[in-house]
Design a protein around this nucleic acid. Sequence first.
RNA 1: GGGCGUGUAGCACAGCUGGAUAAUGCACCGGCCUCCUAAGCCGGAGAUCGCGGGUUCGAAUCCUGCCACGCCCGCCA
Length: 587
Amino acid sequence: MKLLKNEVQHLVMEALETLGGDSSLVEKMLQASREITQGDLTLPCFPFAKALGMAPVAIAENLKDAMKPHDAVSDVTAVNGYLNIRASPSWLAKQLLAGRSRHAADEIRTDVLIEHTSANPNGPFHVGRARNAILGDTLVRLHRLWGNRVTAEYYVDDMGKQVAVLAWALENMSKQEVEELLSDRDPVNSQWMNKADHQRVRFYQAAQRRRQEGSDAEEIEKAIGSLVHASEHGDESVLEAFERAYQPVLDGMLETLGRLGVHFDRFTKESTFVVNGDVADLMEELSGLGINGVAENGAQYLDLGQRGLKGKTEFFYRRGDGSSLYATRDIAYHRWKWRQCDRLVNVLGEDHKLQAQQVGLTLVELGERKPEVMFYSFIKLPEGKMSTRRGNVVFMDDLLEEAHAHAKEVLKERRPELSASEVANIAEAVGTSAVRFNIVNVSPEKGFTFRWEDALSFEAGSAPFIMYSHTRACSIRRRVQEIDPHAEPSSSVDMLDEDQMPEGLVALLRTLAVHDDRLSKAVREHRPNLFAEYMLHLSTAYNMFYRDCYIVQNGQINTFFYTVSELARAALKGGMEGLGIVALESM
RNA sequence: GGGCGUGUAGCACAGCUGGAUAAUGCACCGGCCUCCUAAGCCGGAGAUCGCGGGUUCGAAUCCUGCCACGCCCGCCA
């Protein structure tokens, strides 16, 4: 609790100095209490024992007695060698009501560029890719909640083999031929028949099959090879043909993502840096580096082993034919990105770890900084790995439909009086929010197994749980305004005496007070799950407050409670937006 | 074979820059709707923190060995 720490750290330091202890350690050691029931800040006294020649238990006791009283502190205790400091709830309330709980502006807000998703535009968005989009978009939103200026960027892979296969198939195969080749597979869900990503992926899949099994596989390979070659040398007519092939697919994917609340500020095409010459310039510059090496056929690489890379140390950036590689273009892209931000973050699957290291080391070699990377591990199905080729994928479009349908069922049972359009609206919000939360709630580097029952769970620990708390706060506001249309939250209200404050109120005040502590950590360490956890705590705290503190009773409005409720409502709403959960006012 | 990551109640997940009785949810058991929405609240039970060593006053947390799982080790993207 930084709010409290700012206030009392010097008191703890002074108390420690009276015992002759090294107060410079206090800054680091005075930390949020692990046992929330014990207090808000805790100083473990063990590290001071040796220097003071005193038992930790005695140090804690002495510190307790030496601490000067302060408005912000309601209680200081010494337990088992820990000095526990509890914030005064009424002091907390005053700070919160006066808007002083936000971290000070000394924690700089910056320009951040976050690249995420960047999936190849060759087919519908599936759940396996969802982690990138949802984590990335959440990170974007959390940075914005914190106050940073953010550009969310999608790097479009508009050249190379995958797009070439798609373009070739659309040019050279008929719809009928495609369906014949794929006759052993499930047909396109009729609901998505007219969605270009679902339509065109069939061409891609059929072409893949012909490339592998067809009698003319060799010729096809040749044709595709020449397209790839042309695109890599910046042939604009080929690149334009590619774009005509993938753009409708990308649009379909973005429609799906939009339904999840995932949006981008900018799309940057990979070919940009080939066409504008940046890649050629870059390769020229790389070839002049001391760690440059040349293979027999003229291909070039950097020996990153000399810069500490383990395992395979040769990093190839130029083929024997002189063309660039994906990673080379990525480096050109990164230099371009660095010219427009202070902080650069990439969201990447764990399969990109080596490549990210190569790109990072090369950037350093060129005098640039490494980007920050949020890695996540893949989503798998209970049956095993997801694979487009084997056809065991869950499309995001289908998941969202399921989630919507499930929410609708729940809703019909709970709120039979709602109209069809209200039901549709709420079900969509609940369904998409639940899907997002299910993914964002787990730590990115942990493996994730997609289970329908988890994705569609609406109970405690889910997005609807948070949404529900928020609607309660909204409902209360509506009631207050019905009673008195001019009712306003007020920062100058009579508060309850500290000893009369109910448990739920105190819990809520304490939770609101640590909002920025948790947000700043989530943003700094790119760990959205930490903030998701906070939002669950906040919702629980609001529910306790709701239980203990009647804002409207016998037609009378309790302005203090109402003010606290409104603070919580704002925090809930802001936090929900930060997580991409739809903040409904009624559900 | 080498590199990186993960391993915490039946399941899922937090805590990991060393500190108290390892937090939370699901499932399980028991209570709460004449009272601001019960998608809620209260209580109960459930954990050799993968296994073995080491460092330390103190280890889920740090070091080391082993085991299991994932990812990578293309002049692919």
